[in-house]
Structures are given as structure tokens and as C-alpha cells.
Design a protein around this nucleic acid. Structure first.
Lengths: 222, 222
DNA sequence: CCTCCGAATGGCAGCCACTGCCATTCGGCG
DNA sequence: CGCCGAATGGCAGTGGCTGCCATTCGGAGG
């Protein structure tokens, strides 16, 4: 997928009072909360600096400084500088969305709807950050490159689901084409959206994506 | 595109005798010939080492040593280590092939034929190296990533040609989809070919590519 | 409240890709 | 033969990234 964020604990200094026998969400404990906050601090600091002075010209050390952690820590949270922007855990979301589609539905339609619906969820989660990420990815070559690597993983994941659905082999050429072509179309749609200054509502975005995927479904008719 | 090579001067120590008033191919002169040889030496050394001990584990210094030049020189010839594998100048070939297609031909068919024919030319130029390159690109993540960046450039180029053909704007969403989807399909076909150990003849490869593009033209029918 | 374990952190040395700069060498040409 | 500019080698420096070790800190038990 193209976005990320982290469903962070709603707040930090909340009631932590003693025993609460019934708490299914299982309060994460200070350690965990702190980790989440650190992760956010790093990412926010990075985004801020990237916007101010550009991605390439912002050393990781600077990000660490700004986030008030050591450079080592930055790399412990994000294996590479690129991952600060690219890391997301939306793939499972997408997979789940695809699984939810009725079994009878044609595979391509199912995939289209799954993409659209998880896109909606992601957008709603943090529209602001989502847009910043898309812009960064579009503009910084290094990120674009790394992103398509990531897309390849996503494509693989989608292929597995579609393989189940259709009874085809996982490495089936047709399946590869379908998934990678659809992700390519999705990416183009998002870039195109970024070009327009990300104007309009969520509905506009969905329409754009639908239109993009429609081109494929109509056999690239021009 | 996916390949590269360099149409090198046919040999090295050939007749360079004095005056030859009529020589339209304009003998390149020692300087040029040496440059070409150096370039090849670096690339060959790199490929050899990559095969022996892997891409990531081969420092540029080692390549320089093997090619018997200084590390500085390597970077003068190839801006990045990745470019040693990725650099190609087939984009113009492809563009030309596309221009050759009859004006009446449907854009997608024209693009398909152009891709196929330039692929043939590239393959014939140096099948050995072509296969090595594809394998490397498929297997090394860094190269895959960089490759898709490069594909984006190719897509842009194709888009321009298609824009002329169809009268659409260059940044037209539909055009973007068409070009990037077709390149994605081409890439998948090549990877798939690599998976089979690159078995078969050139005809088999063309059939594979045609089949891949056919999936798109049939609207991703499964 | 103290204590101990393991997780999280900071700091440091080092590797490697890549960049600039300058001195040297070498091809081309009068 | 001798000059000019291109090609090269060498070197210092930046920045991403890794591995290691000492320190700190959260959390569970006494």
C-alpha cells in the first residue's frame, strides 16, 4: 500500500489507577506506550524537517536531535531512513478487506473494491499525514524506488489471496499481471491526485481510483 | 526498459593506419576507444564478481581493483553502483520503434509491437548479458527498486509518444495507466521468464510477452 | 521500599557508497 | 617536441547503516 500510521494509544497521561478486573483492551503498560510515543516523535520530527529542508538534505542525526533521541535509536525504530516515510502496516488491512468480498465476485472486481475500501479506511485514519506521505513519495526518487519494492510485496500478498479465490497457482503469470497492473494503476491514481494538490473529498479520490482501475477492466481502451 | 549494453567498438587492436579520406563512421580515436574499453572492463569485472560473491557483498573498491582502475574512475563511469547493472540506452530504441508503427494502429497494439520488436533487438545484441542482468535485477532488492524508478522514466517517454498519437494531454490519467500497466506486465513477463531459467528461444520469450500484454488487452479477464 | 532481570537506550568504532578537490598522466595536435 | 585539455589516481570528508558494549529504566517479585 501507499500509506502508513500507527493507531497509537489514544492519549498518554490517562487514568492508570490500580485494579480494573475487566479490561479486554489490556492497557499496554508504560513501556509500550513510551515506545509508541518515541516512534511517533521520530516520525513527526522527520516529517517536519523533510518539509522544511527536504528529504535528502536532512541527515538522520538531525532527525534524532529533533526527536530528542540518539541516532542509534532512530535506526532501531526504522531500519532505514526511507522506512521512516514508507513503513506502514496496511497490508494486513488490505488482505482482510479482500477476504471479506463475496466468494462469487469476479476477482478483479473484488480486488478493486478491497483496494477502495481499505483506501478509505487509511485516508480517514490520518488524512493530513497520508497526503504528506504521498507527496514525499512522489517527489523523492529514493522513496519512489523503495516504494515500488514495497508494492511488489503487496502484489505478492494479493496474488496469494487471488490464487485461493481462483484456484490458480501462486506464481501464475496472469495473476502476477493482474495484481501488479492494478497496483500500478492505483499508484498512478494517487500520484495524479497528488498533482491536483489532493483537492476534493474522499469521494473524489475514490472516483479517481475507480476510474483508474476501470481503464484496466476495459482492456486499456483509450 | 530492462536491459542495457553498449554497442561497443567491434574490436580493440584493429588497423588504425594513417589517412583514410573516406570513413563516414569516423574512426573514434584512441581516447574514445579506451573509454569504451574501460567502461566494459568495469562492467565485466562487476558482473563477474556479482556472480561469484553476490551484489551486496562486493564493494566498489573490489570492482575497481578487478577492473584495474581506481575507485574514483568507477564512479566517473557509473554514478552509482546500481547503475553498473542498470545503465542502458534502449529507451531511444523503444521510442523509435514506437514511432515506426503505422499511425492508424490502435495505441495499445502499437505499444505492444514496439515493445516486442525492441525487445528482440536487445536480446539479439547480447543474450548472455541480458539474461544475467535480468537475473540480478530480479534477485537484488536494491536493483529492483532502482529499476522501477527507471521504468517510470520509460513510461513517461512512452506516454509522450502516445500523447502525440492520440491527441491526449501528456499527463492524462488514462495514458499513465496504459503505459505503466504495460510496463508492469512486461516486467512480470521478464521475471517469469527468469524464473523458468530463461529457457527457450527468442520466440518463446516473445510469446510470453505477448501473452502478458494480452491479459491487459482482455481487461484482466482470468 | 528494595532488588534484580531484561528491555530500551546512548555512544562509539567501523564499513561502505558517494562527493570534491588537486596533482599527475596521457592522448591529440600543432 | 611541446603544449592543452581530458582522463586518472589519490585523498579527505559526509552520511547511511551495523555491531558492540556499557548504562539506564520499566516491571515483577520479595
Amino acid at each position: 500500500m501507499t500509506m502508513r500510521s500507527m493507531a497509537p494509544a489514544p492519549a498518554e497521561a490517562d487514568d492508570d489507577t490500580a485494579a480494573d478486573p475487566c479490561a479486554p483492551p489490556a492497557r499496554p503498560g508504560l513501556r509500550e506506550r513510551k515506545k509508541i510515543r518515541t516512534r511517533q516523535a521520530i516520525r513527526r520530527a522527520a516529517y517536519r524537517l523533510f518539509e522544511e529542508q527536504g528529504y535528502d538534505t536532512t541527515p538522520v542525526d538531525r532527525i534524532a536531535e529533533e526527536a530528542d533521541v540518539s541516532p542509534s535509536t532512530v535506526f532501531r525504530y526504522f531500519p532505514t531512513k526511507e522506512d521512516i516515510v514508507l513503513t506502514d502496516e496496511y497490508d494486513p488491512l488490505l488482505e482482510e478487506a479482500l477476504r471479506q468480498r463475496p466468494a462469487g465476485e469476479p476477482p478483479v472486481a473484488a480486488l478493486r473494491e478491497a483496494l477502495c475500501s481499505s483506501l478509505t479506511g487509511i485516508y480517514r485514519a490520518d488524512a493530513e499525514e497520508t497526503m504528506l506521505r504521498i507527496r514525499l513519495i512522489r517527489e523523492v526518487p529514493a522513496l519512489r524506488g523503495r516504494m515500488s519494492e514495497h508494492s511488489a510485496d503487496t502484489a505478492w500478498l494479493l496474488r496469494r489471496s487471488l490464487a485461493e479465490r481462483t484456484g490458480r497457482a501462486e506464481d501464475d503469470l496472469e495473476l502476477r499481471i493482474v495484481t501488479s497492473a492494478m497496483l500500478a494503476a492505483l499508484t498512478e491514481a494517487l500520484y495524479s491526485w497528488a498533482d491536483t494538490g489532493m483537492a476534493g473529498t474522499l469521494e473524489d479520490l475514490r472516483a479517481l481510483v475507480t476510474r483508474a482501475l476501470g481503464v484496466l477492466e476495459r482492456g486499456l481502451t483509450l
